[in-house]
Write a protein that binds this DNA or RNA. Sequence first.
DNA 1: ACCTGAACACCGTTCAAGT
DNA 2: ACCTGAACACCGTTCAAGT
Lengths: 192, 192
Amino acid sequence: MPQGRPMRADARRNYERLLTVAAEAFAEHGENASLDDIAKRAGVGAGTLYRHFPTRQDLLEAAYVDRMQAMADRAGEFAARLPPGEALTEWLHEVCVGTIQVRGMKALLGSAVSDGGSAADTVCGTRLKDAARRLVEAAQRDGSLRPDIEPIEVLRLAHGVASASELAGGRGHEIRRYLTLLTEGLRPAAGA
Amino acid sequence: MPQGRPMRADARRNYERLLTVAAEAFAEHGENASLDDIAKRAGVGAGTLYRHFPTRQDLLEAAYVDRMQAMADRAGEFAARLPPGEALTEWLHEVCVGTIQVRGMKALLGSAVSDGGSAADTVCGTRLKDAARRLVEAAQRDGSLRPDIEPIEVLRLAHGVASASELAGGRGHEIRRYLTLLTEGLRPAAGA
DNA sequence: ACCTGAACACCGTTCAAGT
DNA sequence: ACCTGAACACCGTTCAAGT
């Protein structure tokens, strides 16, 4: 996106208004927020929205790429000040919380880690998986995480924890509780 | 539904064709299958569909109530021939598999165990939770399940496992794998 | 009592016409 | 090069008219 000629001033303005409005709309109404409504609220024609973002997924990703990046960055912070096992757990907790609070983010996480997912190798997905890989590998070297699990699986399971927590009401209490169950299951076998 | 006057012959026929077609459509296209399409394929006007099933949720539940009941019944079979811990695990496995294979069932399970869920106290939901309660309590008495967990939570977590497995491709292999992680987390604490 | 299907509102998507 | 908004197709929902 930063590549290529700079946008014309009006195009750039529309592009950014669309992103702002879309982030609000997806946060409020979830991933199926009305595109027509987003265009209207941004004060542009529907065609303009489609010119910038050919698919809903494109818009969803562009609207949250910064927040996703911020999530990925948090991994480094945890790694710097916590033992590997705890760093992974705390980071996953943030992923779950963020994913539940900002309605649209869960869809984005889902498509980033989904098997045939369209967002599998986008900026969002790649950064998130890189972050997960570092925490996972450190925890495995440390012996606090079972060795037979892959980074992407940890993210899929976090998505599952978020789903279960949502069903329970999505309060912080349940997220922590269900995540703890997961991390206990992720421990290496007792006799290893 | 079985209460009240018997339906007129044409009404009864339409009702049943709608259920058959709806079960197919939800299985194929998921919970958001087109209602208009369902009415057309059943050979009835849209108004007839709404007369019998005022909301999408009503139709979804009616279409799968038998299958849900069958799932609940399986709990008794497992309880009869397996130790409590295994009976619970194997039943949850069937719930996950069924929930993934029949696309609309996952939505139904979700609303049955969701906090403010519309289907929280419907036939489907109640039977499923009763079945879960028996297996959970037996496993807790047996010492193979941590005592601080409730039946509905087990179902929510199964929904989460199904979500994670779907992201991984939904093949039997992943379901079993993720469910195993969950059950290890559900074990009582080592020093208890 | 029940059914039909037209009618309305809404949304996604495309595209000809504008600047 | 980019934008607009009308146009089309589709879907959910209601309701007047039919039997």
